[in-house]
Structure formats: structure tokens, C-alpha cells
Write a protein that binds this DNA or RNA. Structure first.
Lengths: 128, 128
DNA sequence: CTTGACCTTCACACTGATGTCAGACTTTAC
DNA sequence: GTAAAGTCTGACATCAGTGTGAAGGTCAAG
């Protein structure tokens, strides 16, 4: 699919899709005319990237996470140096901290909202 | 406590503590000499703010979340307009998306790490 | 064949979170 | 009392993520 279609389907501006490619988060084919040709899977990939960026992960890290999703294909697992593993472990702790903090904030917002007269706006995500 | 102490205890640079104050996330007293005098509670508050910022929440939103933590004191609950409640509900969904996405990424990293020879680096946060 | 919609690359501007430095004042230590 | 360390304000720089627009190529509809 072309960039406009992917943009429409994900809500992510075409500008950003090019940026993601530039950062090595997407690697669309190119059709003869030079247009980017995205795969169906890129829809999910793009929304994931967008959410991760919104969550404060730098593209540098997102690239790593994406590559880790099929470690075999990218020839990982083998050469994972001690240093790199330590970096990862550090990032892992940071991730946990963020998740905890975001969860707490979400609960705060939800609790607040549920105490107002607009509690009806609470959609799903009810109980955790 | 003075800014240097708070900085040391939270790991947040003094520069950022001043920035937080500027953004209305902290409101330290001032002692006679003009120095900021932070309260003990600010230690937790600051680490929370730092984590939320790292999680991509703009200070504008963090201010709201903080105020929501004691809605009565800030005289909320009463005048929570429909429009504002809708904004909140939207942010709530965005929060859920981020939490889901971060959780998934954390699991990816952890699974990966646990398959390497450096699995020992995995500290707590084990099961969930 | 022309028009309009969509694509390409490139560049500049903006914003929010940070780092850093300068100049002035306060406090602490010797 | 003097020197060092800490604090104040304020300005400027940087970096990542985004928005926006220019100049030109591609393609489908009329």
C-alpha cells in the first residue's frame, strides 16, 4: 500500500512515516516509480511505534525492541555482549518504573472521573 | 530542604527542579534569603513527575493529574465541565494504550534477555 | 493533453525537555 | 575575613519529534 493509505489507516501523518523509515523503524519496498510500498503488517508496526514514541521511548530503543521481536532472524541471541545486556537490564527497570507510574496516574484519572457526574464517559478498561 | 539536597535525593538535576516549579508542578516555600525550601513530600512528588515526563506526559497533563490527587482541596469535582471530562476520557484511553504498549515491550525485552546467557541480570519484576 | 491528486526529497521552523554558562548574592569552612 | 561551595535568575544551545512548504515526478480522470 502507498504512504497515504497507511497514513489514513493508522492516523500517523505521512511525514512521520518517512521519519520512522529514516530512523530504521520501517523498511518499505519501493515500487518502480520510487513510491514506498508498505506491507499489511506495517499497519500494526506503525501504531506500535507511535505508541512507544508517545510513551517516551527514543527511536533508538524502539529499533532494538522491534529487532528483538524476532531475534533469530536478526541473528541476535548469539552476540549479546555483557555490556549490552546490562544496558538492556537498565532499560527494563526504567520501563517498569514508567509502567507503574502511568498505571497509577491512569487510576487517578479514572477514579477522579468516576466521581464526577460524567462517569458515563468511562468506556472499557474498567477493572484492570 | 534546599534544592541541592532534593536534587541529590531524587537524582533530578536542580535545573529541572526549577523547571518543574516554573511549570507549576512544585510550589516550594521560600526562606528569607530567597532560597527554595522544599518539603519532605516533594521527594516523592519529584520522582513521580520525572517518571511521568519520561513516559511522555506533557507537564500540562501532569499538573492536572497532580491536582486530581486531592480534588477536594483544589475545589474540583464541582465544576468539571462536560468538555473537560471528555478531554480526560480521551487522555485516559491514550494512557491505556501506552501502558499496554509499554507492557508488551517490557515483556519482549525481558523474554529476550532471559534467553541469553545474561539472564542473571533480571532482577525483580519477575512474574506479573 | 491537461488538471488535480498523490508521491518524491529537502529544508526550515517550532516545541518541550535538558544542559550549560554567567553574574550576583548567601552561606559555610577555614 | 577570605575562599569555596551553594543558590539565585536569566539567557543561550541542543536534541528529538513534528509541522509546513517548496520544487519536481507520477498517475488517473476528463
Amino acid at each position: 500500500m502507498k504512504i497515504g493509505t497507511l497514513s489514513a489507516r493508522t492516523g500517523v501523518p505521512a511525514r512521520m512515516l518517512r521519519y520512522y523509515e529514516d530512523q530504521g523503524l520501517l523498511a518499505p519496498q519501493r515500487s518502480g516509480n520510487g513510491y514506498r510500498a508498505f506491507a499489511e503488517d506495517d499497519v500494526d508496526r506503525v501504531t506500535m511505534v507511535r505508541d512507544l514514541i508517545r510513551s517516551g521511548l527514543p527511536t533508538r530503543l524502539i529499533r532494538i525492541v522491534l529487532e528483538m521481536e524476532n531475534p533469530v532472524a536478526s541473528g541476535w541471541t548469539e552476540r549479546c555482549t555483557r555490556d549490552f545486556a546490562e544496558v538492556l537490564a537498565g532499560e527494563l527497570e526504567a520501563l517498569d518504573a514508567r509502567i507503574a507510574c502511568l498505571t497509577r496516574s491512569r487510576d487517578t484519572v479514572r477514579d477522579y472521573l468516576s466521581h464526577t457526574e460524567h462517569a458515563a464517559l468511562l468506556s472499557g478498561s474498567a477493572g484492570r
